[in-house]
Structures are given as C-alpha cells and as structure tokens.
Design a protein around this nucleic acid. Structure first.
Ligand code: FES
Ligand code: FES
Lengths: 138, 138
DNA sequence: TTTTAAATGGACTAAAGTAGTCCTATATAC
DNA sequence: GTATATAGGACTACTTTAGTCCATTTAAAA
C-alpha cells in the first residue's frame, strides 16, 4: 500500500502539460495530448481545481489553467489533492484501526507519517519534470 | 494509498509481544495476547518467518521466536516482509504503469521511493515500542 | 437570443488489492 | 502413535481505486 495512486501520477502529468500552454485548455485536449482517457482527465482536473492547484473557466472555448508555476507546486500538495492527507495508519487517539489490547503505537506512526510527508513536501513538479528526460521516456 | 497495511501493523505488534517471551510461543497464544484473530496471526507469522525476522519450530509445544532484538529490526524490513519492496509507482523502464505519450517521470519516482524507504530504514521496532507509552494506549 | 463548448457534481460500475479464513500436509515432542 | 503446532496454499469477503456516465450550470460565440 505504499504507492501513489494512478490518479496522482496522472495529476503530475497533467500539471506538466498545462504548464506548456499559455491559455486555458480543455480536458478533452489534455486527454489527447497525454493519452489518458478523457473522463479520467476530467475527474483529475476537477480534483485539482477543488484543491486550487489549477483554475477553471466555464463556457465555450475555455478550460483549465495552472494557478502557479510548477516550481511552486509540491508533490505533497498534489497527493493531498488526490488522495487526501498522508497518514500511515487510520488510527486517531480515540479510534485505533484495530482494537488491540496492547497497541501503543499510534503516536509513533504519526511521527513517521510526518517524515514521509516531508519527503513529498520537498519535491516540486518542476523537479519531477526536469531531471528525468535523460533517464527514460515511456 | 500511502498507508501501511493492517497486517504490517499487526506484525509490529506481534514482534513486540514476541520480545517479551524467552521461549518459543505459538500463534494461538499470541492471538489471545494481542486480540488479533488467530488465523490472521498465523498468516502474519508465516510471512515474518519467510522473511527470517522470526524463527519457527514445529511440533508440540513449539512456536515462534524472535531471531534478533527489536533494535535490530527496522520497520523497512517488516514492511518488506509483509508488503514487498517500497516502490511508489509500478513502472519499470520497460513497462510504465500507464502507457502515456509524454510520461518521463519514472526515474524520479524511483528516487523518491528511495527517500521514503530511508525513512523506514531508520526506525526500528524498538523505537516504535519505547516512545509511545506516554502518548496513548489503544 | 440561440447554440455550442466546457466545467461541475454526483452517482454508478468495474477492477484490483487487502484482509481474513480454512483445509491439507508436514514436522516434532512426549 | 498421538497431540500439537507450523507450512503452504487456496479461497472468500471486503474495501478501495479506477474509470465511466449523466444531468446541470456557465459563459462564450454565432
Ligand atoms: S492499532 Fe492503533 S496504532 Fe496500531
Ligand atoms: S507512467 Fe511511467 S512513471 Fe508515470
């Protein structure tokens, strides 16, 4: 379960594609550009809009635009938009994920979650975009 | 999807319980001690045995024992035993998780996976056990 | 003003992955 | 030999994710 979801992967790709356009572009155009099916693109863009990572305009000829530059968008914020907050366990102080007689682990998991979150906080989409053209293209 | 699985949580709890015994103990006893259902305990212990984190003896009156002390068992090794290697995406250089026209992100994900792995590599089960008795017990 | 393009919201289905159970075989102590 | 316990694996149930679709709202363009 320590994976990012497919939709998060799509989101990063869509953000990168959005950055290459000056004007707002529609989800159908992005679908063609990226190869991701249109309904899925639409879904992801809706999520990114709610999270205010992109800006949307309705009506004919409109679409989506980035709200900031790629180097200002952290991977953490994309994950938050698509998957919700990073929390390694579902426990909170009242409701542990399992009712175990001797589980005293919650606080520690929280600390580790924070460390993981930090990793994603330090990577921007610009970082993702730049470094890898040399490594491989899929 | 950035969560550890329930079974991993169980595994840490079982390891901690095992450390409190001198002799080998059976999965049924551990089930009673921890409150985790016996078949599930058995499953987890089998996985931990295959990963050589615990040692098993068969036959009457036998059971499972820790193979090392808790401060030598990293969380990374437990996650590896239960969930397999930490890899944020399923792509490899030949087969990307999705066949996208412009996805050049694989290498970077690999780097981030490594950073996440490092977080878990630096936490031992002993760390988990010690720090949290004060925080809450579930 | 009508038409058309596009986002929004939410419901829904399908697919995948996890969790949990159970059964048969094997090993070992007594 | 019998009782106890692990080993392996198949299987079911459950939960989550991924993906699709439709009815509504918005706004530009004709
Ligand atoms: S059951 Fe609460 S942290 Fe494990
Ligand atoms: S599809 Fe290959 S890393 Fe995203």
């Amino acid at each position: 379960m320590l994976k990012i979801s497919k939709l998060t992967d799509y989101a990063t790709i869509l953000l990168i594609h959005l950055s290459r356009h000056q004007k707002a572009i529609s989800s159908s155009i992005l679908a063609v550009e990226t190869g991701v099916p249109e309904p899925t693109v639409a879904k992801v863009l809706k999520m990114l809009t709610r999270a205010t990572l992109v800006q949307s305009c309705r009506g004919a000829g409109s679409g989506y635009m980035l709200k900031s530059t790629l180097d200002q968008i952290t991977l953490a914020s994309v994950i938050l938009a698509i998957e919700g907050p990073i929390d390694l366990v579902n426990c909170d102080h009242e409701h542990c994920r399992v009712t175990l007689k001797n589980c005293t682990l919650y606080g520690k998991w929280e600390g580790i979650s924070l460390q993981v979150r930090d990793v994603f906080e330090k990577v921007t989409i610009a970082d993702l975009q730049n470094q890898n053209k040399a490594i491989h293209s899929c």
